[in-house]
Design a protein around this nucleic acid. Sequence first.
DNA 1: TTTATAACGGATAAGTTTGTCTGTTATTAA
DNA 2: TTAATAACAGACAAACTTATCCGTTATAAA
Lengths: 151, 151
Amino acid sequence: MPYNYNNMFSKSCEYGLRAIIYIAQQTAQDNKVSLTTISDAIDSPQAFTAKVLQQLTRNEIVKSIKGPYGGFVIEHEKMDVVKLSDVVAILDGDSIYTGCGLGLKKCNENSPCPLHFKFIEIRNQLKKMLETTTLAMVVKDMDTETFFLKR
Amino acid sequence: MPYNYNNMFSKSCEYGLRAIIYIAQQTAQDNKVSLTTISDAIDSPQAFTAKVLQQLTRNEIVKSIKGPYGGFVIEHEKMDVVKLSDVVAILDGDSIYTGCGLGLKKCNENSPCPLHFKFIEIRNQLKKMLETTTLAMVVKDMDTETFFLKR
DNA sequence: TTTATAACGGATAAGTTTGTCTGTTATTAA
DNA sequence: TTAATAACAGACAAACTTATCCGTTATAAA
């Protein structure tokens, strides 16, 4: 098994999060951004990123505008409403922060796997972080720290 | 994208962890267990589990014994030495608890991605948990709580 | 020494994710 | 109304993970 490394999120989700953060940041400055601009800014495969953005569009996380001068924006009222967990749930599902670490479907508080109480803390912390972080919060943070979305 | 759900670990790693925990528990009772017994106990595809166990054997996490009355055991002195992180590192690599949440290779303390300081806490906690939990500890816990490694 | 057993190793197949290509649809400006 | 632009949609392809199959090797017991 040659290529075995496993990230927290799938590529779809990584690109989706990076894209949404970039769009949010641009939206906050009243810029509308095209797919080309986005995939260039976050260094992701363009056509694949298009698919990911389509999903986020269908789920009304972003708004897409067709035609010349079109692109993607996030409606202002969404900035405080959309959480990282919304994006992750759409693209990867929620099993990363709700499922059992050993992949056991029936594992729970009452009949726990041997690692249940080791994992529950971490999963809950991840869950809490994703569910309490809005796009507005991420964008606000980006004012202060060095901005970085490539490679 | 129809089948997108993402667990913390790959299937290889899930099976590997379940297998090693089962073997450790049996070893603690001086039982040697065969592949058939293992894959039956942890409800995993037998041939695939064999491959995973081969990797763990090559990396000297478990000891395999060929021939009749053969099987897998964990040498007693290993029980306090082998950590969950060792198994995970072999089967999935360590990027789940060392890599950037957005998949950015150059992301670090000095040039952080917008979510770096949100993720670092969680990753460190996961890292710490995996690196400080030995097989002996897991087996010991299993005395008290309900034992559960299937489905 | 033979036979049965159980792990090992390589090849192959099936399933899923990741990525590309090509044409279509909507919309803006000229 | 036409031409250009940019998102959309579906098909297709490549890469990787998951899973199976089958013959080989080591070893214990008869």
